[in-house]
Write a protein that binds this DNA or RNA. Sequence first.
DNA 1: GTCTATATATAGATAGAC
DNA 2: GTCTATCTATATATAGAC
Lengths: 202, 202
Amino acid sequence: MRTVDPVRHEAKRRHILNAAAVCFARKGFERTTVAEICAEAGISSGSLFHYFPTKRSVFVAIFEQDGRDNAERLALAAEADDPWQAVLDLVDSLAEPLAEPRMARLAIEVAAHASRDDDFAALLFHNDRELAAGLADLLRRAAAEGRIDGSVDPALAASWIVNLVDSLYGRASFTADFALEDEVAMLRLILTRFLLVEPRKD
Amino acid sequence: MRTVDPVRHEAKRRHILNAAAVCFARKGFERTTVAEICAEAGISSGSLFHYFPTKRSVFVAIFEQDGRDNAERLALAAEADDPWQAVLDLVDSLAEPLAEPRMARLAIEVAAHASRDDDFAALLFHNDRELAAGLADLLRRAAAEGRIDGSVDPALAASWIVNLVDSLYGRASFTADFALEDEVAMLRLILTRFLLVEPRKD
DNA sequence: GTCTATATATAGATAGAC
DNA sequence: GTCTATCTATATATAGAC
């Protein structure tokens, strides 16, 4: 008979992480205080430190989920019949969180923090490489089928696609009246013209 | 007979700003202490606060120069005979600071800080809009001469070019073995295929 | 103008009652 | 497991001698 209920424990952890994400998006890692996270979550600092050993560990835990989410999306994309369409769909799905503007700020905060925290950077780096590797596979298939330009190195092109999506996040936090649909459409146009072999119809 | 030598004053200011830029690139705005800047500059905190009222003012001063530099580059580009070539050259010159890796980290720190400091964001926003406006003019000229695709809105395309260059900065701080020349070449390929009207030769 | 010394505030994290 | 109270460290900025 155990004294802790693991389900309740996990639920509370997530509750804290959600509150923390809101705060980190609002003010960044350094300027967000543990007291603010506690206020947002409706708990005391003693309680927060019962669930997480440090403020940093709260931050890191938020993004460990991301790698898992992307791995799922890649697995789905790998099963698609049309690899090039799968690439475009993947780009759409990666851009989707931008419908919530605070996610853009959080993404930038992540990049900034990674440049000063090597372990955290390694986590993100791993996530990005997994994503780029999955994209490269799709591009290779598309090139084999003659759908896209085979002269561009798939690995390099894949890492540029990841980067272009990242740039969309930068753009979202920096552009007044950011219109997600228009921006995604432009990104698709850039990618299509960059890689598609077929003659232009536009 | 004045007691301050304005030349010496300005030189000291720049010395402090250079030292501060090194520190901010290394650890970000929040984690960099005034004491560290002073150590890097070889002065005391009392002395630093003689030149700048706050730590933030030091940070801001570093980037006020950027707008002036870009304005100069734009003025040069506006006089070029070949507007499309001028765009590509401008992109090269914007990417050039990346030869020093610490500049990439500083750029990311800037973006993160801007998302929490509205006045600072306004400064950067102004700089970016000036740059995009200048690029849009060049694109309009290039389209009028039939050099590039006239169906793409020049203003939107221009802001994407600015964004693609920004993404290069993100990429630089995130890519192992970042090879500036290869990356710039790929960026030029993307831009050329995105906008150029002439049939592909590759 | 530059320094040393320090005021003041506020952070992350801990202790221990309940 | 959650709280209140607090420790300890460290930060920005100031005061005032030289």
